[in-house]
Design a protein around this nucleic acid. Sequence first.
DNA 1: CGGTCGTACTCAAGGAAGTGAGTAGTCAGA
DNA 2: TCTGACTACTCACTTCCTTGAGTACGACCG
Lengths: 189, 189
Amino acid sequence: MALRHAVLAALLDAELSGYQLAKSFGMGVANFWHALPQQLYAELARLEKDGLVAGREVVQDSRPNKRLFTVTGAGLAELERFTAESAKPSFMRDDLVVKVHSADHVDTAPLIAQLTERAGFARAKAELFTRLLEAMRGSRTEEEFLRRGERVGPYLTCLAGLAYEQVNQQWCERTAAVLRERQTARADR
Amino acid sequence: MALRHAVLAALLDAELSGYQLAKSFGMGVANFWHALPQQLYAELARLEKDGLVAGREVVQDSRPNKRLFTVTGAGLAELERFTAESAKPSFMRDDLVVKVHSADHVDTAPLIAQLTERAGFARAKAELFTRLLEAMRGSRTEEEFLRRGERVGPYLTCLAGLAYEQVNQQWCERTAAVLRERQTARADR
DNA sequence: CGGTCGTACTCAAGGAAGTGAGTAGTCAGA
DNA sequence: TCTGACTACTCACTTCCTTGAGTACGACCG
């Protein structure tokens, strides 16, 4: 029951279709959760069945019809309940980190490549988040916006995403540099 | 097949029992992965069946016997293969972030409490990692250790954990402060 | 005018992960 | 001496997430 609340939270900001949700959860604006389209359609169906969201059909010509969803009163209440209950600690879970852990026992060349690639992705995501933040706060300074803006939730989660991607990038670059140096040092012997 | 490699990587550094693994994966030294005891026992059984680890019984008096596991040649080869295959991108997945996303629509008091609590945990974990790093590098500087140390994998993953916990702590504190300020600002109106 | 891309969604199946309960002996402290 | 905590592990169940395939139609490009 975790995706469930992520979907509700996402629908607070805008009325969206399953497809649009899938886009932002697949990446794009998914600064706070990730899920595949199938999961989202399934979850939306369950949420609607439970009365936490309401869908309305939108007829489109020159492209398939779609269903837009909004959070109901019951949905808001459920979010309220969820937010009040104590959060379980979050854990890091990343293939790349596991690979680095065993770096002393395996060939590091492909690892360095993966770290470099990951650093690039992290940089791109960080830049995207930076632009999103600018768009949200408009002409105001961050301080000002956080003090008096109307909707700071998405801004704060975007800040989390930015910070996460920045350290991710730094760590990947540093780690790649260390492994590269050790590789050449070994070759010299 | 993700926990699988995390277990193999953990066993590279030391011969461990399921119970000991469970301790470090449950927290403690689990700077790079998290899992519950049941998962680990099941995974160890599968790994042994597949010949990737070998267990040996250690008879103890005054406490239950245990089985210690080591990585076999096949296990190392599997890790090698895993490390070479390209990594899928990692995603942030955190209840707390979801809650913050909906902060504008719900009562923030319990959220602030959770953020403060999380900040405390993150701080404690960061301190633990700092001490672990010191212990690993001994009298050497970080630079020196990373250049010439024998086993830098665990050190690098610990650095990742440290960086992660530090930004986590900062974000939680900042977010809690923002929400607190907005709460009092609202009360003043 | 044919191929590919984008919108919008569905179905089926499998593996990974989390939840809860239980066993059984040892040791330290109230 | 009883309680609770620690070591060491097992079994059963459920829910979540991923993988892979498939439908349908319009739009854009060469």
